[in-house]
């Protein structure tokens, strides 16, 4: 598997580290929210774990060190999109 880093071009998988689902969002902390525990449990532990399209975070650890959002098919490993997380406005 190779990942096309938007900064460095197509590079070997060995240079990248995987950080899981990129669509998760940390819940807003609000002391009045009775469901806060449930929301954080969902955020920390629950995953869609799809067989198919998956948006996921990778870091080009042994390259430019940028965080990337990769759209990959978990059956075929086909990558349809690789974007710099910063460009997507992601706080990684």
């Amino acid at each position: 598997m190779r990942i096309k880093c938007p900064h460095c071009g197509e590079r070997s998988l060995d240079e990248f580290s995987y950080y899981g689902d990129a669509t998760l969002r940390r819940p807003e902390v609000n002391d009045q929210d009775a469901n806060l525990l449930a929301k954080f449990t969902d955020y920390v532990y629950l995953r869609d774990n799809p067989a198919g399209q998956h948006q996921e975070l990778w870091q080009h650890q042994f390259g430019c060190r940028a965080w990337l959002v990769v759209t990959r098919d978990t059956n075929s490993h086909l990558m349809t999109e690789v974007t710099a997380a910063a460009q997507k406005g992601e706080a990684a």
Binding site: D42, Y45, L46, R47, D48, N49, P50, A51, T74
Partner: peptide, 18 residues
């Protein structure tokens, strides 16, 4: 490995990754 999909049929999200 396919538990997440089967459970999704009942609307349950699982703390699993495959």
């Amino acid at each position: 490995g396919h538990t997440s999909h089967v459970m999704a049929m009942a609307g349950v999200r699982m703390p699993l990754e495959s």
